[in-house]
Design a protein around this nucleic acid. Structure first.
Lengths: 209, 209
DNA sequence: TAGATTGTTAATCGATTAACAATC
DNA sequence: TAGATTGTTAATCGATTAACAATC
């Protein structure tokens, strides 16, 4: 298959498969059929088989899927077979909370530094991570093989920051600011629009009642 | 239209429309056509008109949409015409960061209390919000007309907490813990699976390069 | 070999886009 | 009235589900 052909919907489901397989692995489950997994995850067995077959045949007829092997393969597809170096831009409470999330480290995402404009914050260590001045951004990115930048700055400075990040070589942006970042198509952006998400919840709850 | 018939995809797009209309309103734009808005938002004009017409005809032929009016109407659909009372379960760094987010308050989401099991945290005020003991959860929810509960606790206690919340009357859960919550269909859950989101970004970036 | 379950093709379903008559 | 743009129907596209032959 051509890797460009895989739909966003399929990629979006991979982390969830990975999470369930990790749980099964931890429980010591050796093999699982698409039917069993489908019941666990509340999706169709057909969808699981279709999704996985975008990347190759990981199963065996009459047997199902080996949990350990499938976990490893999906991990590779997700890029978790090697570590990733991240920086956090914005040392506010959200940026700081992200810096302290142990899940990221366990999955191989290493937070190398934080950046802020506030002189009071610069030089401090938050969850063990040093806050640098924004002036050091370019050098730090280039010298530390930074893969991914987290944007956790106020809306009004997000787009300027984004331009700089791309300029300095960043190709993956995890955006927490409440605005859309316009990027060229060789840059990947994943948005966590918290307020949008909360509004969606509020709306869904209304429509359900 | 029957409100139950509106697809999740449409509801998921409403907050983004609302955000763009808010920006236009702020800029003083009086009216906008679906074509202009589509160019701004990078979607098709057709989709905008289809989406809006799920809820009624908000526009006028030959004129377009009145920004102010449309903003108000979408706000109503999202349930933003009245305030919502929330609680945050889990006074860790993520829960605390959410407590300090001014965007939520501006949109009418009022965070009334935080809850934790840690005696060291109980009684403290974080971003002006008091941390209560989990033992007070039931009474607090019932006495303060709580709409929405934020789940920002470790994975291993998330499901127990969820059961209690539903038991105490909560019908909308904003879940930040890295697991899926199994809920009856009269309860709305919106997940912010941060690690999933980060993995998706990592994967997308790989496939793009 | 018989049973189970995959990989994969075909059918269905839903969501998006295009087109255009209605109408401001 | 003429031009613009909606509301809405019809066409297309893509994603999901069903079915089944292949095969372990």
């Amino acid at each position: 298959m051509d890797s460009k052909d895989i739909s966003k919907a399929v990629i979006g489901r991979l982390p969830r498969y990975f999470r369930y397989l990790g749980d099964l692995k931890e429980k010591g489950t050796e093999r699982i059929s698409s039917k069993e997994l489908s019941e666990l995850m509340n999706v169709t067995a057909s969808q699981i088989r279709q999704d996985l077959n975008n990347f190759g045949g990981f199963g065996q007829q009459g047997y199902g899927y080996n949990v350990d092997y499938l976990y490893g393969e999906i991990g590779k597809i997700l890029g978790l077979d090697r570590p990733h170096n991240l920086i956090i831009c914005g040392a506010g409470s959200l940026g700081t909370a992200l810096a302290g999330n142990p899940d990221f480290i366990n999955a191989g995402f290493r937070i190398k530094a934080m950046f802020d404009v506030d002189p009071v914050k610069i030089g401090k260590f938050l969850h063990g991570i040093e806050v640098h001045s924004n002036k050091e951004l370019e050098d730090f990115i280039k010298e530390n093989e930074i893969d991914i930048a987290i944007v956790a700055v106020p809306v009004n400075s997000a787009n300027d920051l984004k331009d700089k990040l791309i300029d300095y070589g960043i190709r993956a942006i995890w955006n927490f600011s409440n605005t859309d970042l316009d990027v060229p198509d060789y840059v990947a952006v994943e948005n966590v629009h918290l307020l949008d998400s909360l509004m969606k919840l509020s709306c869904t709850a209304i429509f359900r009642s």
